[in-house]
Amino acid sequence: MSAPNIDYEFSVSIDASDVCVRKALVDIRRTLGRLGVSEKDCGRIEIVFAEAMNNIVEHAYPSVSGRIDIAVTISAGSVHAVFCDYGCPLPNLTLPHGKLPKTTVKRDSLPEGGFGWFLIHTLTEKLDYTRFEDKNRLSMRIVLDP
């Protein structure tokens, strides 16, 4: 089921909305599956892409509509992904740290959010964010299981 020899690239542009993100995730997963990427890797990729795009919908375009451009390259056993948007920059132009919220707390204080960046950091390598003019660019690499 491993996919070390796939060489493929594709790009998708979507409206930055929850519903369009969902549809893009389903489409991308279908494409990856067709290319022979394992179910396990597809699952890891889907959660990373979901968190990256949810973050854009929620924070880059909090009250305006906008676009997300996604470029995916599969090569040499890894997936390289770039997400671009034209909304608000990340605070301080810096990637959030992605620490896991504390779960050893009383039930009333359990976290209901803050997992997104943790999941992205955990599952990716070479995570990078740049702001150039009015464009946010988030790039990352996900190594496929050999």
Binding site: G43, I47, L110, E112, G113, G116
Partner: peptide, 30 residues
């Protein structure tokens, strides 16, 4: 598929039941 928003909503569903009650889960897919 559950993303971090969905996960937060499941935690929220448990919290809103109050501390005297229990929410267990069954049948988690991979």
């Amino acid at each position: 598929f559950v993303d971090s928003s969905g996960l937060g909503a499941i935690v929220g569903a448990m919290k809103q039941m109050g501390s005297e009650r229990r929410l267990d889960l069954v049948g988690l897919t991979a």
